[in-house]
Design a binder for these strands. Structure first.
Lengths: 140, 140
DNA sequence: GTAACTGCAAACGCTTTGCACTCCC
DNA sequence: GGGAGTGCAAAGCGTTTGCAGTTAC
């Protein structure tokens, strides 16, 4: 999803009876300004510079809240920590097997091919997750 | 991969200079006899009945060893524990959004469609993981 | 005999929880 | 003013690690 501006995200919080706090806005904007899939700790480390009092617990709670609002997807790769994917549309997670860096690949024909697969299987999909492991340019 | 018989798996261990132990054979056979994706604890709980002295540490170590041999894939879903998928070929993990049960869906045309996607992206794939979330018959 | 493996328990790291204080509304 | 949200620290839990005893070879 495209990043909402301040006014839109504030409205969304209010509409859902969540209070609007500096921390929530900052975390939302940070995660959605990135093309990759940051972990809780990465988010915490960066935002702590601007908000020294920020706690890791608040980062976790806010990300859970954003997930409940359907704005992002919690993903576990083969590592200990959770990562957050702010793109809820169909895409492929391009995961470098060496360095672990992840970016999203999107293309119209993937949707078409995926729909063919879905109709073959014959179930009503609630969502999906597609990872492609490869060696990125930096590691190759 | 199809489950190897006792002789084959013993040969494979020996070929790779790993000692053949009762625990290793039992864990291998258990994971490969199942169509789903058991967690470490599930494996431990079941095998403890036949091997009361078995420890959880040995289960972890053995599964890591089987992964190193390329026999299975470690997968993290949106839960705390690791699951083990003994099927290394291209397939779709059918994950029930409600109860979390997982089974593999395989079909020839998925491979063809996946190859189309791969060649569109234009990278050399090292592997992949495809999850489809749906509501299984028991939960619907 | 000896090096690898096992079982056990402690350590580890990420995540969750509980609670007093704070600050939106 | 009141209740939701925050920060902090402790607890929780799956996984890893270290080590003494055991077993495969």
């Amino acid at each position: 999803m495209k990043m909402m501006d301040d006014q839109e995200i504030i409205e969304l919080f209010k509409k859902n009876q969540f209070k609007v706090t500096t921390q929530r806005i900052a975390i939302y904007k940070f995660v959605f300004s990135r093309g990759d899939h940051p972990s809780t700790d990465q988010i915490y480390q960066v935002l702590k510079k601007d908000y020294p009092a920020l706690s890791l617990g608040t980062v976790y709670k806010t990300l859970d809240l954003l997930e409940k609002l359907g704005l992002l997807q919690k993903l576990r790769f083969n590592e200990d920590r959770v990562r957050y994917d702010p793109d809820m549309e169909l895409h492929i997670n391009m995961v470098c097997s060496i360095c672990g860096q992840i970016y999203d690949y999107k293309a119209e024909n993937i949707k078409q091919l995926w729909n063919v697969i879905i109709s073959d299987i014959g179930v009503k999909p609630m969502g999906q997750r597609i990872d492609l492991y490869y060696e990125c340019n930096d590691c190759r």
